[in-house]
Amino acid sequence: MKAYLGIDVGSVSTNIVVQDEAGTILAGLYLRTKGRPVETIQSGLKEIKQSLPGDIEICGVGTTGSGRYLAGVMVGADVIKNEITAHAVAATFFVPAVQTVFEIGGQDSKIIIIRNGVVTDFAMNTVCAAGTGSFLDQQAARLGIPIHEFGKLALQSTNPVRIAGRCTVFAESDMIHKQQMGHPLKDIINGLCEALVRNYLNNVGKGKEILPPVIFQGGVAANAGIKAAFERALGMEVQIPPHHDVIGAVGAALLAREEMALNNKTTNFKGFFISDLTYRTSSFECDGCPNSCEIAEIYEEDRVIGRWGARCPRWDIIQEEKN
């Protein structure tokens, strides 16, 4: 059976999906990147291979996320696309009428405005981590609550307390202050959810025309407290699409299928065996000019397959993304 592989290597999670020709998800995987993208990609491929039927033939591979170039050279990607395009593609696939996409991941949060199936505007958080999954993760760890319980706890709250949302430093000190005053945890967590939503709508969503259907995806969409806070703030329904946590990978797989269909070529996919190869990364400081760029390299066995970090073409061996 023909299938397409999509890999989304994000700051917090690495997601892998395999889709058939019709877009049905045959297998999906959500893994924590834990700062080790290479190992995570390898173990993820191994795991997903085991859950696939034997007659699967991978006919195209797409990568996305902040680690898309790394993943791209490792597996032999046919298309390497930024996560905004990948998310928009997946959103219109699941909800064709979608007009607004909220996406909150580990490091980024973004809003994508879609009209008639075409992206007409987008925005991404710029210099601030407030309102992203990493901060929620960190607070959940501080409070000793598993992240998947976090949202459910917020839903039990009847009286959210006000938490400052503009900056994680302010938010955390506000939370600690309220906790020491004796406010129940569920109300503090609900307050945090409302603060994040407020910050998102004021910062990322500023000036954008938010029209229904609105869909909410990315890792944070698993948090029921945030979804409820969005619905309260907007006064409209917010849908969570299927596979919301691996949606970037779904988009990458759809883009791979499109790429192969349009250009009628054979895949560059190296095969699942790469999870048994040895990959090594290293870095050095270039001495070519006072810029002293920090160059990172990745080796497959003994061969350099990728280099990044240079501000000039001196160390280029990687092909740029083809548009």
Partner: peptide, 18 residues
Amino acid sequence: KAGMTTRLEAFVDLMKRK
């Protein structure tokens, strides 16, 4: 440069379609 590249690529995609 990664953050900038991602945004630029998406921006270029958007403008091309428009």
